[in-house]
Design a binder for these strands. Structure first.
Lengths: 121, 121
DNA sequence: ATTTTTCTACTAAAAGATTAGGATTTGGTT
DNA sequence: AACCAAATCCTAATCTTTTAGTAGAAAAAT
């Protein structure tokens, strides 16, 4: 697995949501900051296919793309990468930083506690 | 704040540890995968200075560099970035994924519980 | 059947990341 | 003051990322 660049990430987020989609579907979901050209997004999808995040099948003249790496798989990898590179491999240290810096609601806290309770067994 | 590239990150990790150091100190800490040239690392340190992660003072003929962005500041920013880009802004969802995927020891779990206990008040 | 539209494939160029060589400066030493 | 060694500065080549144009093929419309 290889890290996604900023733009690749943005494209993958859309495809993970749409599941089966063509280039145009993705372009339509992108904000018009300026809206990138059709061919630009097409290039990204070709690259993502080379990197084996996507595959495609034909439907008439269209290519229908779909993810072959799932989002949970990538987020897991990505969090591990961050843990190793920024927190010296310590999960505890990442959790500490994140929990202290994030405004968790009381109900979030209760949910986390029951998750931890579950893991004790 | 701007994200650090892979190599920039590696260099910053060393500087955050050493606090005050010259180019050579950093080069010496890098593994010899192949060891990068002195001038390569110097270039990175110049870029990191432009990006305002570092500053330097003179000592004899050497430049002594030191961080002006601290590691906790960057890790915080970086986790927030990941939360927003991969977990739709949901801290709960990031924590859930991370906690479930990480082998936490029993003592880690207890520590986290008391941290959460602390945040309830 | 010919024209028009719509999509992909190929190409390439601008911007950013990574690498390092050679010229130049400079602090210290004789 | 002149020299030397060590460090910096400047520059540039290569690689990756991001962007998009043009050509060509396939389908749709006339």
């Amino acid at each position: 697995m290889k890290a996604l660049s900023e733009r690749e990430q943005e494209v993958m987020n859309i495809i993970w949501e749409l599941r089966n989609c063509c280039v145009e579907d993705v372009v339509n979901r992108l904000p018009d900051d300026p809206k990138p050209a059709y061919t630009t997004i097409q290039t990204f999808m070709r690259i993502l296919e080379q990197k084996e995040f996507l595959a495609h099948k034909r439907d008439g003249k269209k290519h229908i793309f779909y993810p072959i790496v799932e989002k949970p798989e990538y987020t897991r990898w990505s969090l591990k990468h961050m843990k190793d590179n920024l927190f010296g491999g310590s999960a505890k240290s990442l959790l500490n930083t994140f929990i202290r810096d994030t405004e968790l609601s009381q109900s979030d806290i209760l949910e986390l506690e029951s998750l931890l309770e579950e893991l004790k067994r």
